[in-house]
Structure formats: structure tokens, C-alpha cells
């Protein structure tokens, strides 16, 4: 079966426990993290994860759970299929 990959992006004020909160949602949904990178951009914490969502039936559901974390920590969290980035930035 073809693997489906998505990008999880987290942007917001830096604080303790961001990665732990986000990754536990992913772990609970049995989503494997393939790559992770983070940086601080003009005081904003920015994290990108490439994750394997082959076994996720509803990305919407995952997004909803991440939205809850986002709300609690005042972060913007998005999960998007990786293809969109690939098609915009690679020929």
C-alpha cells in the first residue's frame, strides 16, 4: 500500500510542553512521525513534522483533536497532505 504523508505545522508563542502535547495526540492516533524540525522565528515557535497518515481514515478527525491542543496552548496547528507542498515547491 502506498504511504500517505502529511505535514503538521505548529506556530505560536514558545512555551513548555508544545512538542509533548502535539506528539501525544499523534501517538494516540497511531500516527508515526517521519521527520521533525523546529525553529524560533521572530519570537514565534515554529515546528513542522512530516507524519505517516496511511492508516488514518479521517484527517478531519485528527485536525479536530489538534485544534483542541491548539486552543489550550494558543497555537495554530494544521495538518495538510504533503502533496500540496511538493507540488508547489518541486517540479
Amino acid at each position: 500500500m502506498e504511504t500517505k504523508r502529511a505535514v503538521v505545522s505548529v506556530v505560536g508563542k514558545d512555551q513548555i510542553g508544545i512538542i509533548s502535547h502535539v506528539t501525544s495526540v499523534l501517538a494516540n492516533n497511531k500516527v508515526n512521525i517521519l521527520d521533525i524540525s523546529q525553529t524560533i522565528l521572530q519570537d514565534f515557535f515554529t515546528m513542522m513534522m512530516i507524519v505517516d497518515v496511511t492508516n488514518i481514515s479521517s484527517l478531519e478527525d485528527l485536525q479536530a483533536q489538534l485544534d483542541e491542543v491548539g486552543k489550550k496552548l494558543a497555537l495554530t496547528i494544521h495538518v495538510q497532505m504533503e502533496e500540496i507542498f511538493r507540488s508547489m515547491h518541486r517540479i
Binding site: 505545522s9 506556530v11 521527520d35 525553529t39 522565528l41 513542522m48 512530516i50 495554530t76 507542498f85 515547491h89
Partner: peptide, 17 residues
């Protein structure tokens, strides 16, 4: 080649801002 952090940020910026 994998997508770089900057490229991801660019897409996200284009959509959100």
C-alpha cells in the same frame, strides 16, 4: 528531495496571511 522548513512556511504563510 524533502521539503524544507522554509518552503513549508511559505505555503502556510500564503494561505493563512
Amino acid at each position: 528531495m524533502d521539503i524544507t522548513l522554509n518552503e513549508m512556511l511559505e505555503t502556510i504563510r500564503m494561505v493563512q496571511m
